Amino acid sequence: MDSESVKVKRDATKRILINKAPPILTIHLKRFSQDARGRYNKLNGHVVFKDSIDLRPFMEPRHPLV
């Protein structure tokens, strides 16, 4: 391996899957936007959510449903 390391910036996403859905799920949303200079700005607008959410797209596919 070369003694010089090459650092490359890439776009990345983070994926978290749920093994078993809890009776009450608490989600912390980081409501920030990043501008072209890398600065973060808080998003202040109101967000409306439904009373229920379909968690199937976020469930671990290898875990059997209980």
Rank of each mutant, 00 (worst) to 15 (best):
residue 1 M to R: 10
residue 1 M to N: 14
residue 1 M to I: 11
residue 2 D to N: 13
residue 2 D to A: 12
residue 2 D to T: 13
residue 3 S to D: 14
residue 4 E to Q: 14
residue 5 S to M: 15
residue 6 V to F: 14
residue 6 V to T: 15
residue 7 K to F: 15
residue 7 K to Q: 15
residue 8 V to Q: 14
residue 8 V to Y: 10
residue 8 V to D: 12
residue 9 K to I: 12
residue 9 K to Q: 13
residue 9 K to R: 15
residue 11 D to E: 14
residue 11 D to R: 15
residue 11 D to Y: 13
residue 13 T to V: 14
residue 13 T to S: 14
residue 14 K to R: 12
residue 15 R to Q: 11
residue 15 R to M: 09
residue 16 I to M: 04
residue 16 I to Q: 04
residue 16 I to P: 03
residue 18 I to F: 02
residue 18 I to W: 01
residue 19 N to W: 01
residue 19 N to H: 05
residue 19 N to R: 08
residue 19 N to M: 01
residue 21 A to H: 06
residue 21 A to Y: 05
residue 21 A to F: 04
residue 21 A to P: 01
residue 21 A to T: 08
residue 21 A to C: 07
residue 22 P to H: 00
residue 22 P to V: 05
residue 22 P to Q: 01
residue 23 P to K: 04
residue 25 L to W: 00
residue 25 L to A: 02
residue 25 L to E: 03
residue 26 T to M: 03
residue 26 T to C: 02
residue 27 I to T: 00
residue 27 I to D: 04
residue 29 L to H: 03
residue 29 L to P: 03
residue 29 L to A: 05
residue 29 L to T: 04
residue 30 K to I: 05
residue 30 K to T: 07
residue 30 K to S: 07
residue 30 K to A: 06
residue 31 R to I: 03
residue 34 Q to I: 07
residue 34 Q to N: 04
residue 35 D to N: 02
residue 35 D to Q: 02
residue 35 D to P: 01
residue 36 A to R: 10
residue 36 A to Q: 11
residue 36 A to F: 09
residue 37 R to M: 12
residue 37 R to T: 13
residue 37 R to W: 10
residue 38 G to Q: 00
residue 38 G to K: 02
residue 40 Y to H: 05
residue 40 Y to M: 08
residue 40 Y to T: 06
residue 41 N to C: 02
residue 41 N to I: 02
residue 41 N to P: 01
residue 42 K to I: 03
residue 42 K to C: 02
residue 42 K to H: 03
residue 42 K to A: 02
residue 43 L to S: 03
residue 43 L to N: 02
residue 43 L to W: 04
residue 44 N to H: 00
residue 44 N to E: 06
residue 45 G to F: 04
residue 45 G to K: 01
residue 45 G to H: 04
residue 46 H to Q: 12
residue 46 H to A: 11
residue 46 H to N: 10
residue 47 V to D: 08
residue 47 V to L: 12
residue 48 V to R: 14
residue 48 V to T: 15
residue 48 V to E: 14
residue 49 F to A: 14
residue 50 K to I: 08
residue 51 D to Q: 10
residue 52 S to I: 08
residue 53 I to T: 12
residue 54 D to C: 07
residue 54 D to T: 07
residue 55 L to V: 07
residue 55 L to C: 05
residue 56 R to I: 12
residue 56 R to Y: 09
residue 56 R to N: 13
residue 56 R to M: 11
residue 57 P to F: 06
residue 58 F to K: 09
residue 58 F to I: 06
residue 58 F to G: 08
residue 59 M to S: 07
residue 59 M to C: 07
residue 59 M to I: 08
residue 59 M to R: 09
residue 60 E to S: 08
residue 60 E to L: 04
residue 60 E to T: 07
residue 60 E to K: 07
residue 61 P to N: 05
residue 61 P to W: 00
residue 61 P to M: 03
residue 62 R to K: 10
residue 63 H to T: 12
residue 63 H to A: 11
residue 66 V to F: 11
